[in-house]
Amino acid sequence: MTIQSVDVLYTAVATAENGRDGRVASDDGNLDVVVNPPKELGGSGAGTNPEQLFAAGYSACFQSALGVVARQAKADISGSRVTAKVGLGKTEAGGFGLTVELAVSIPNVDREAAQQLVEQAHQVCPYSHATRGNIAVELTVV
């Protein structure tokens, strides 16, 4: 797999303190959250966690990509929703890895057209580009 060349238009900057049991903040102050491991991993679950932040970013990005392809197809995606489920687990190699399920609801489009839009959005979304070949991503039209 080759690394794509990108003409950078924006750079997000965030700094973490104390890893999964600390704080993450963006340089502009728009994001400043406590992070804690979830209860399922032995943590307090009192704050957010990296997987929730990744799910939030991926779902928002995918929704935007869906908008791009829908405009091109002249499809009405009003009322659509993208829910990202990010799983964290052990890999066969002994480390940790992620899985992603994107559940997409497009109420004003028939199921076949919705599936096509979702597949096209998956080709456009920067998060999908970043995960392709690295993380199992399941696309579901709901």
Rank of each mutant, 00 (worst) to 15 (best):
V24N: 02
I77N: 03
A65G: 13
R23N: 11
V142K: 11
T48L: 01
A60S: 15
Q115T: 15
Q63E: 12
Y10G: 07
V109N: 01
A75N: 01
K90H: 11
A114W: 00
V86L: 04
G43L: 04
V13F: 10
Q123N: 11
A93C: 03
G19K: 08
V8R: 11
V142I: 12
S59D: 03
T91P: 09
T11S: 12
S64Y: 11
V68P: 05
V82Q: 00
Q4K: 13
V124F: 04
E92L: 09
T2Q: 13
T131E: 06
C125Q: 08
L88H: 11
Q72M: 09
T48N: 04
S64G: 15
V6F: 12
D7K: 14
P126D: 06
P107R: 04
A12K: 08
S5G: 14
V35F: 05
G95L: 04
A75K: 02
G95H: 05
A65I: 06
S64V: 11
A70R: 01
Q63V: 07
V13A: 12
G19Q: 08
E92R: 11
R23I: 03
A14R: 06
G97C: 08
N108L: 09
L9H: 12
E40M: 07
F96G: 06
T91A: 10
A84V: 02
I77F: 02
F96C: 05
D21V: 04
Y127S: 04
D76Y: 02
A25Q: 12
G19P: 05
V104G: 00
D21N: 15
L66G: 03
G95I: 08
G79W: 00
A114Y: 00
D76G: 01
I3W: 09
G43Q: 02
G94I: 07
G47Q: 02
N108D: 03
Q120R: 15
K90P: 10
L88W: 12
Q72H: 10
R132M: 07
L98N: 08
G94S: 07
V82E: 00
I106A: 00
D27S: 15
N108E: 10
A56T: 12
K85L: 10
V68A: 10
T2P: 13
V24L: 09
S105Y: 09
E17M: 09
Q72P: 04
V124M: 05
Q4P: 14
I3M: 12
F54S: 07
L102S: 01
T2V: 13
K90M: 12
L139G: 01
G19I: 07
D7G: 11
